[in-house]
Amino acid sequence: MNANALSPRGIVLFAHGARDARWAEPFERLAAKLRALSGSGTQVSLAYLELMTPDLAGAVAAQVAAGCTSITVVPVFFGQGGHVRRDLPLAIDACRAAHPHVDIRGTVPVGEDDAVLDALAAYCLRQLS
Protein backbone atom coordinates (compact mmCIF):
# COMPACT_ATOMS: atom_id res chain seq x y z
CA MET A 1 0.00 0.00 0.00
CA ASN A 2 1.22 3.51 -0.80
CA ALA A 3 2.46 5.29 2.35
CA ASN A 4 1.01 8.58 1.07
CA ALA A 5 -2.45 6.99 1.05
CA LEU A 6 -2.20 6.79 4.85
CA SER A 7 -0.92 10.34 5.31
CA PRO A 8 -3.37 13.20 5.55
CA ARG A 9 -3.57 15.39 2.49
CA GLY A 10 -3.72 19.14 2.77
CA ILE A 11 -5.61 21.85 0.95
CA VAL A 12 -4.72 25.48 1.55
CA LEU A 13 -7.23 28.03 0.32
CA PHE A 14 -5.07 31.04 -0.51
CA ALA A 15 -6.77 34.45 -0.52
CA HIS A 16 -5.61 38.06 -0.62
CA GLY A 17 -6.51 39.25 2.90
CA ALA A 18 -8.05 42.50 4.10
CA ARG A 19 -8.02 44.82 7.10
CA ASP A 20 -11.67 44.10 7.90
CA ALA A 21 -12.00 40.64 9.48
CA ARG A 22 -15.53 40.31 8.06
CA TRP A 23 -13.99 40.10 4.60
CA ALA A 24 -12.75 36.59 5.43
CA GLU A 25 -16.18 35.20 6.38
CA PRO A 26 -17.00 33.69 2.94
CA PHE A 27 -13.58 32.03 2.84
CA GLU A 28 -14.14 30.59 6.33
CA ARG A 29 -17.51 29.22 5.18
CA LEU A 30 -15.85 27.73 2.10
CA ALA A 31 -13.19 26.07 4.28
CA ALA A 32 -15.88 24.66 6.58
CA LYS A 33 -17.83 23.24 3.62
CA LEU A 34 -14.64 21.72 2.23
CA ARG A 35 -13.81 20.13 5.59
CA ALA A 36 -17.28 18.58 5.74
CA LEU A 37 -17.02 17.23 2.19
CA SER A 38 -13.44 15.98 2.28
CA GLY A 39 -13.47 13.89 5.44
CA SER A 40 -10.93 13.40 8.18
CA GLY A 41 -8.05 12.45 5.86
CA THR A 42 -7.78 15.99 4.52
CA GLN A 43 -6.48 19.02 6.37
CA VAL A 44 -8.12 22.27 5.19
CA SER A 45 -6.56 25.63 5.96
CA LEU A 46 -6.89 29.23 4.95
CA ALA A 47 -3.85 31.38 4.17
CA TYR A 48 -3.55 35.00 3.17
CA LEU A 49 -1.15 36.99 1.05
CA GLU A 50 -1.27 40.04 3.30
CA LEU A 51 -3.09 41.83 6.12
CA MET A 52 -4.35 38.60 7.73
CA THR A 53 -2.85 35.47 9.24
CA PRO A 54 -1.71 32.85 8.69
CA ASP A 55 0.41 33.45 5.63
CA LEU A 56 1.07 30.59 3.23
CA ALA A 57 4.28 29.53 4.98
CA GLY A 58 2.47 29.30 8.32
CA ALA A 59 -0.48 27.35 6.93
CA VAL A 60 1.81 24.90 5.12
CA ALA A 61 4.01 24.46 8.21
CA ALA A 62 0.93 23.66 10.31
CA GLN A 63 -0.23 21.06 7.79
CA VAL A 64 3.24 19.50 7.65
CA ALA A 65 3.24 19.36 11.47
CA ALA A 66 -0.12 17.56 11.24
CA GLY A 67 1.52 14.91 9.03
CA CYS A 68 0.56 16.04 5.54
CA THR A 69 2.90 14.81 2.84
CA SER A 70 0.89 16.28 -0.05
CA ILE A 71 -0.48 19.84 0.00
CA THR A 72 -2.45 21.58 -2.73
CA VAL A 73 -2.64 25.37 -2.71
CA VAL A 74 -5.86 26.66 -4.26
CA PRO A 75 -5.86 30.40 -5.04
CA VAL A 76 -9.31 31.76 -4.23
CA PHE A 77 -8.92 34.54 -6.80
CA PHE A 78 -10.94 35.21 -9.95
CA GLY A 79 -7.99 35.56 -12.28
CA GLN A 80 -4.24 35.54 -12.63
CA GLY A 81 -3.21 39.04 -11.68
CA GLY A 82 0.24 39.88 -10.36
CA HIS A 83 -0.32 38.24 -6.98
CA VAL A 84 -1.17 34.87 -8.54
CA ARG A 85 1.38 35.08 -11.37
CA ARG A 86 4.27 36.52 -9.37
CA ASP A 87 3.79 36.40 -5.58
CA LEU A 88 2.14 33.00 -5.18
CA PRO A 89 4.76 30.98 -7.12
CA LEU A 90 7.50 32.58 -5.02
CA ALA A 91 5.64 31.72 -1.82
CA ILE A 92 5.05 28.13 -2.97
CA ASP A 93 8.73 27.78 -3.91
CA ALA A 94 9.72 29.01 -0.42
CA CYS A 95 7.39 26.42 1.13
CA ARG A 96 8.90 23.69 -1.04
CA ALA A 97 12.40 24.73 0.03
CA ALA A 98 11.35 24.68 3.70
CA HIS A 99 9.66 21.26 3.35
CA PRO A 100 11.50 19.36 0.59
CA HIS A 101 9.94 16.03 1.63
CA VAL A 102 6.39 17.34 1.00
CA ASP A 103 4.69 17.47 -2.40
CA ILE A 104 3.39 21.05 -2.58
CA ARG A 105 1.55 22.11 -5.71
CA GLY A 106 -0.62 25.01 -6.80
CA THR A 107 -3.71 25.15 -8.97
CA VAL A 108 -5.10 27.80 -11.27
CA PRO A 109 -7.32 30.39 -9.55
CA VAL A 110 -10.83 29.15 -8.81
CA GLY A 111 -12.30 31.87 -11.02
CA GLU A 112 -10.74 30.28 -14.08
CA ASP A 113 -12.56 26.97 -13.61
CA ASP A 114 -15.64 26.51 -15.80
CA ALA A 115 -17.64 24.85 -12.99
CA VAL A 116 -17.05 27.90 -10.77
CA LEU A 117 -18.05 30.26 -13.57
CA ASP A 118 -21.17 28.14 -14.23
CA ALA A 119 -22.13 28.39 -10.55
CA LEU A 120 -21.63 32.16 -10.62
CA ALA A 121 -23.67 32.50 -13.79
CA ALA A 122 -26.49 30.45 -12.23
CA TYR A 123 -26.36 32.69 -9.14
CA CYS A 124 -26.60 35.81 -11.30
CA LEU A 125 -29.57 34.41 -13.20
CA ARG A 126 -31.37 33.59 -9.94
CA GLN A 127 -31.11 37.27 -9.04
CA LEU A 128 -33.37 38.11 -11.99
CA SER A 129 -36.32 36.35 -10.31
Rank of each mutant, 00 (worst) to 15 (best):
G106T: 11
A94C: 03
I104C: 01
I92G: 04
V76W: 03
I71P: 00
T107I: 09
V74T: 02
P89L: 07
R96G: 01
D103E: 12
V84D: 06
G81A: 13
H99T: 09
R96Q: 06
I92L: 12
P75C: 08
G81L: 10
S70I: 00
V84M: 06
V116P: 12
A91K: 08
V108G: 15
C95W: 05
I92H: 03
I71R: 02
A97V: 14
G106N: 12
P100W: 08
I71A: 03
D93G: 12
R105S: 14
D87W: 03
G82H: 15
G79H: 11
R86Q: 13
G79Y: 05
V73T: 03
P100N: 10
I104H: 05
D93L: 10
F77G: 10
R86M: 10
A98H: 11
I92Y: 05
G111K: 10
V102H: 05
A91L: 15
F77I: 09
P75S: 07
R86K: 07
H83S: 02
R96M: 01
R85M: 11
V102Q: 10
F77H: 13
D103Q: 14
P100Y: 12
R96N: 01
R105N: 02
V84R: 02
G81F: 09
H83C: 05
F78E: 05
T107M: 13
T72F: 02
F78K: 08
A97F: 05
D93Y: 03
V110K: 05
P75I: 06
V116L: 15
V73D: 01
I104W: 00
D114M: 11
A115T: 11
I71H: 02
D87F: 03
P109Y: 06
F77R: 12
G79N: 14
V74H: 02
R85A: 10
P109R: 07
T72Y: 01
V102I: 15
V74Q: 02
H101A: 15
I71K: 03
A97D: 14
T72W: 05
F77Y: 15
S70V: 04
P109A: 06
V116A: 14
H101I: 00
L88V: 00
V76G: 06
V74L: 14
V73L: 08
L90C: 02
G82I: 07
I104E: 00
R85L: 13
F77P: 09
I71V: 12
T72L: 09
D103V: 07
H101C: 06
H83N: 04
R86P: 04
A94P: 00
H101L: 13
L88P: 04
D103N: 13
V76F: 13
R86A: 08
D113T: 14
T69P: 01
V116E: 14
R85V: 08
V102P: 10
L90I: 14
